[in-house]
């Protein structure tokens, strides 16, 4: 990591997907700034290019124009300092929970080189991380033996095992039931407060964004760009009860109104 300061900067990025029927403009002149250690949420109507934003920031897809700078380094390819989690936990069914969590360490340097030698050390780390998300004693289970919420916790652990400075989440809780979702909000909140990474959370759940984020960026319909940034000035640490306070509701209403506005053709 280059320095302890800096931020994730997306500068005037444009992205076109080439498909059989011509190009689809996914992002148009999108700019976004997320200071180190901040929890940022990106919300918007479906199909607004939120997932494209994920791919651009992690360097999986190069933008047509504009650039991305993460903590001082310009993104030129896959960034390696990012962890990712998606709506689908995407766990490998032939690996036990612990081996799923350890997967990134078998790939990312410098862990990859040391993985065989320091296996026990890494296993201990993975066990500790699983314990933090409430999966103590589940490390030897297979993913199919776990509920959806538990699988998503494992997916979070896998995203965090290599201690990334940046966590990219693409609607990670969208497929869960309401109670499990709120449980996982708290899991993510605690992980973030404990480990201090930077988060970019893409979601269409406004309450989720308001509960977790420091800043919420609203994207327009395709081609996507940021139309509003809302600072959530709720005190931390936040408790789930905060979701029922008038100020919280006011923030959600404001976001909702803005999205309704940008959804109009």
């Amino acid at each position: 990591m280059a320095s302890m300061t800096g931020s994730v900067d997306i500068n005037h990025v444009t992205l076109t997907y080439r498909s059989a029927g011509g190009g689809v403009l996914a992002l148009r002149d999108t700019s976004l700034n997320v200071p180190r250690g901040e929890f940022a949420a990106v919300v918007g109507p479906s199909g607004c290019g939120k997932s494209s934003l994920m791919k651009i920031v992690t360097g999986l897809v190069p933008p047509d124009s504009g650039d991305i700078v993460i903590f001082g380094d310009r993104v030129r390819g896959p960034v390696k300092i990012a962890g990712m989690a998606f709506q689908n936990p995407n766990l490998l069914p032939w690996r036990k929970v612990i081996d799923n969590v350890l997967l990134p360490l078998e790939i990312v340097e410098p862990h990859r080189r040391k993985f065989r030698r320091e296996r026990q050390h890494y296993r201990d780390e993975a066990e500790a991380l699983l314990k933090t998300v409430g999966l103590d004693g589940f490390s030897q289970r297979f993913p199919w033996e776990l509920s959806g919420g538990m699988q998503q916790r494992v997916s979070l652990c896998r995203a965090l095992i290599h201690q990334p400075a940046l966590l990219m989440l693409d609607e990670p809780f969208a497929a869960l039931d309401a109670f499990t979702r709120e449980e996982l909000w708290c899991v993510l909140r605690d992980l973030w407060q404990k480990l201090g990474f930077t988060v970019i959370l893409v979601t269409h759940d406004l309450r989720e964004a308001a509960f977790l984020a420091d800043n919420i960026h609203v994207m327009s319909a395709r081609p996507g760009h940021i139309v509003m940034t809302k600072t959530v000035d709720l005190p931390r640490p936040r408790d789930l009860d905060i979701c029922f306070e008038p100020h919280f509701t006011a923030i959600v209403h404001e976001l909702r109104a803005k999205i309704a506005e940008v959804r109009k053709p």
Binding site: L60, L92, P104, V108
Partner: peptide
């Protein structure tokens, strides 16, 4: 293969 899983690994430099 699930494209998202491929993304997770490619983002790690796989």
């Amino acid at each position: 293969m699930e494209p998202e899983l491929e993304d997770v690994l490619r983002a790690l430099g796989a």
